[in-house]
Amino acid sequence: MLFEVRPEVGRLDYMPGQFVEVSLPGVGEAPISICSAPGRGESFQMLVRKTGRLTAALHALPEGARLGVRGPYGTRFPVGDDMKGRDALFVAGGIGLAPLRSAILYVLERRADYGRVTILYGTKSPAERLFTRDLAAWAARNDVQFLETVDRAEPPWTGNVGVITTLIPRARVDPARVVVAACGPPIMYKFVLVSLHALGVAHTQIFVSLERRMKCGVGKCGHCQINGLYACLDGPVFRYDRIADMQEAI
């Protein structure tokens, strides 16, 4: 379910890849990534799947309900720095599109600042495709290469079928110029990283967003630790070379 959240006072400035701690009194708190383009301040969007105590309660909220928000927290996709002036490759798996959408919208709003822009999106089935209006808009642009695939086709799907790595050879990517932003399940990372490595993309050019049980969001409660790193402080977006040799990271 997509939520539009408007601060009652002040504004909430954030960058793509960051998350907020959303809370409902009496229910609890959970980290949710922001999926809208930054820079609006007066409101933001988040896509919430019903998976736990808080998200179930969020789904039951009426329009106009109040909720508590702390944040934004965490690191960002490098849309404002490393990626600028380079080719941008976005690799999204399933609900991983949510945080990446923020980065994609940011880049497309400043299209001239980037080289080639490529978006790869994979879902399990056509029914699970998210932000379908955005997908259509990206597909229609001639300054963006947009490719998508599903693991299992169902009518009336006529597009690509197969895992997301099948799209990588078709992406027009210059390994020397590209900066990759990826978000998806760990299994996706495993295979995508192998494919990117085969293309000759350096680890320092790849940014991945990892999910962990972030609880406090400020590096105190300990739940999201990945060895010495905190997913909430040092992540959720990591440059791949910083975690490549780390156990349990991916």
Binding site: L2, E4, E8, L12, E63, V69
Partner: peptide
């Protein structure tokens, strides 16, 4: 995805 509007306490 479907839209809903919430306001937030800061």
């Amino acid at each position: 995805a479907r839209a809903s509007t919430c306001t937030t306490a800061s």
